[in-house]
Nucleic acid binder design. Structure first.
Lengths: 240, 240
DNA sequence: GTCACTAATGGACGATCGTCCATTAAATGT
DNA sequence: ACATTTAATGGACGATCGTCCATTAGTGAC
């Protein structure tokens, strides 16, 4: 929107129009989002969020490689100095974006798997799987961002911290559920570990399938596939 | 090695040393590798390969984001103009590198799964799994490169073509084997599809695990995990 | 209204990016 | 031996990178 305004008017008024358009449009939106008191035109915390969101959107749109400071600021409608001001540099912003993205994922995952405490372990496992493959978590934007971050994680320690599914509450949720399922058969603790790791691995694979071919991807079939594998691991459980 | 020479000598002789070192060292190596006729100092094909290899090494070392034309040339010991000369630009070189990497993977996979034609379908499936998780295919370099390419694939169509495991001979190998296993039970064609897709998904997940935590990764445990899942899918088969 | 303070701006800066090409060097043909 | 062709070089080029900072604008205290 900003760019369109800038391009469509003559050069003499370009700067004025861009500034006023930015000011009005974005700040009003921010005010609504954050509930900031009316008339205030400054809100550092909201701008930090704006930058993080713009970073994620830019990565999803044009890829990490082409995500530059200028591009992020352009999209957020804020000035170029803002990144250094609030984050101290591009790298820190990227790390903050990865953290925010990860936190958002787990928050939404928690929300979607908040079954009653009387839910069977099978239902809890399936809830995790269905949540992970739901449109809220698995969509074009999130897959692109997720894999982009993972792709640069090994050369970017700050991001690596948020590129793993393996060290979160989610793992314990699954492990506990599988433990309950096998409780009569306690001798086999490796089964629980394998079921947990295997389920997460299958989900990873599904995300890759989605990234590779979004058209041909079917959430239902993917859920059924994983259920089928779990049904094999725990005969009698996870029946359709 | 080039850089060390450049740094360790004085500035007056820097250029001469670098050139002579590059000429001697690299060309002799290339001659040995390619069997080029003695005394020849030009070999465009070898240089293309040299650039591709240098590209992959650079990506594995410092990540795609920092992989620039200068860095690639520095590592290969060739001049900066070479990339434009042989590939017409950086993007084409990256695509060629992705293609080469993919081809190398499948060549090695073929080599390692070349069992006799009397091998059981179970053995053929397990051969694919063990090959994919072997050190020859799954190592720090290959994982970093693989995920780096996948991370930029969605914004780089040329690379996307080589970032999928799903449209290759490998899929048919697995599908055929699983079909043989279920041949008495022909009515269930989805089982074959699920087993194929699930196995590949599990392997994807194992690669991610390896990338995320190379120290804690165990090839044997990963193979056993997948075998366990398959054993559940096909009761009686894939026994330890 | 004035003052101190912080948020925000946008341009300056040197470094590096990828591309391109005039030049040099090597191989080949005659 | 010389001419022709092709491989290879390395610097020039403008664009863009990320960082930094002098300046402006908004806010709250008095």
């Amino acid at each position: 929107m900003l760019r369109q305004n800038g391009l469509s008017c003559q050069s003499s008024c370009k700067i004025d129009l861009r500034i006023s358009a930015k000011r009005m449009g974005l700040l009003n939106k921010v005010e609504v989002l954050k509930g900031r008191k009316r008339g205030s035109k400054r809100d550092p915390e909201a701008n930090k969020q704006l930058l993080i969101e713009a970073t994620l959107d830019t990565i999803a749109d044009i890829g990490v490689t082409d995500t530059s400071v200028s591009r992020i600021c352009e999209r957020s409608g804020l000035s170029r100095g803002m990144i250094h001001l609030h984050f101290g540099g591009k790298d820190n912003l990227l790390t903050a974006a990865a953290q925010h993205f990860s936190a958002q994922y787990y928050a939404e995952m928690d929300r979607m798997t908040d079954l009653g405490s009387d839910a069977s372990p099978e239902d809890r496992v399936m809830a995790v799987i269905e949540a992970d493959l739901s449109e809220a978590l698995l969509n074009p934007r999130s897959t692109k961002i997720w894999h982009a971050f993972r792709g640069i994680a090994s050369s970017h320690p700050g991001i690596a911290r948020y590129s793993s599914t393996q060290d979160h509450k989610l793992v314990e949720t699954l492990r506990l559920a599988f433990k309950e399922i096998t409780q009569e058969n306690v001798r086999d603790s490796i089964l629980v570990d394998d079921a947990t790791a295997g389920t997460l691995a299958l989900l990873e694979g599904m995300w890759v399938n989605y990234l590779t071919d979004m058209q041909g991807f079917s959430r239902r079939r993917s859920v059924d596939l994983i259920r089928r594998f779990l049904c094999g691991l725990f005969p009698g459980k996870f029946k359709l």
